[in-house]
Amino acid sequence: MSNFENIIVEHEGKVATVTINRPQSLNALNAQTISELSTALDELNTDGNCRVVILTGSGEKSFVAGADIKEFSDFNSEKAEELARNGQNSLFNKIENMSKPVIAAVNGFALGGGLELAMSCHIRYASENAKLGLPEVTLGLIPGYGGTQRLPKLVGKGLANELIFSAKMISAGRAKEIGLVNEVFTLEELLPKTMELAVQISKNSPLGISRAIKAVNLSGSSEGFETEIKAFGELFELEDKKEGVAAFLEKRKPEF
């Protein structure tokens, strides 16, 4: 694993926890942090000892408070478009399309790019003190890291419009009500509960999960059903299916 300045990568069994560690700026995303996250996720995606990734922020106040505005405050249109495109391709889309599940443990503020980062993850758990929102229109901007695309898929177009247009923050409880996060826990419970889920997932077929991620990501598109059908068929030729079915028939737990 590479050496990093702004993130910490820890391994526990088959689960890797990636912590964004810029507490002095409430873990805001700058170019270096995005680059380090991209590199770490590339390495974890090819690490045979890692089956699930947890993504969280350091401290008790913030998951990611947003993008580091100082870095792009004087950009022109061309540089701003490049920033958004590179960020989406190198990190946000990468997370969504990883072959391994990424779970966001949202511990506090998840605003702007921070909420977009959480939404790119496959599952979101949050602490009771979490505040979530997309405040970009207060700066005369819009979300640029996929927020206008992922939020409607999670909560519906009407609620997405309300949150984006109003720029208001919502509580973790409200986020759960509308389907933006899966579960809410106390701050002390957040990481243990997230780890509990990650360990449960890590026991299941990695080949099945990787194909499920791809199929779910295409749900609602013209390719979704065909992708599911083909993946279902492909898995019949692979070792995980053979082990899973054998374990079921032999009344034992599978070993993937």
Rank of each mutant, 00 (worst) to 15 (best):
A28C: 05
L29V: 07
A31Q: 13
A31P: 01
A31D: 07
I34Y: 00
S35A: 15
S35G: 13
S38W: 13
T39P: 00
A40K: 14
L41P: 08
D42K: 15
E43A: 14
L44A: 11
N45A: 15
D47Y: 15
V53R: 10
I54D: 07
L55T: 02
T56N: 09
T56H: 10
G57S: 05
G57Q: 01
S58W: 00
S58I: 01
G59A: 06
G59V: 02
G59M: 06
K61H: 07
F63H: 01
F63A: 10
F63L: 10
V64A: 08
G66K: 01
G66L: 02
G66M: 02
D68Y: 11
D68L: 12
I69R: 12
E71P: 00
F72C: 08
S73G: 00
S73F: 08
D74Q: 13
D74V: 09
F75R: 09
F75E: 04
E78Q: 11
E78V: 08
K79L: 13
A80H: 06
E82R: 12
L83A: 07
A84N: 12
R85K: 14
R85M: 10
R85S: 13
G87C: 06
G87W: 01
Q88K: 14
Q88L: 14
N89Q: 14
N89E: 15
S90Y: 03
L91P: 00
F92C: 05
N93V: 00
N93C: 06
E96V: 06
E96P: 00
N97V: 07
M98H: 13
S99T: 15
S99P: 06
K100T: 11
I103Q: 04
A104I: 09
A105S: 12
A105N: 07
A105H: 03
V106P: 02
G108H: 06
G108F: 04
G108M: 10
A110G: 00
A110C: 04
L111S: 06
L111P: 01
G112K: 08
L115P: 00
L115N: 05
E116P: 04
M119W: 02
M119D: 05
C121P: 02
H122C: 11
H122Y: 11
I123F: 03
R124V: 08
Y125E: 01
Y125T: 00
Y125L: 03
Y125P: 02
A126D: 03
N129C: 04
N129T: 07
A130H: 06
A130C: 09
K131E: 07
K131W: 03
K131P: 01
L132T: 03
L134K: 05
L134Q: 05
V137N: 12
V137G: 00
V137S: 11
T138K: 14
L141E: 04
I142V: 15
I142R: 15
G144Y: 03
G144Q: 09
Y145N: 03
G146T: 04
G146Q: 08
G147S: 11
T148S: 12
T148E: 13
R150T: 07
L151K: 05
L151C: 07
P152F: 13
P152R: 13
K153A: 13
L154V: 12
V155P: 00
V155G: 10
G156T: 11
G156I: 10
K157N: 11
K157T: 11
G158M: 12
L159R: 14
L159A: 12
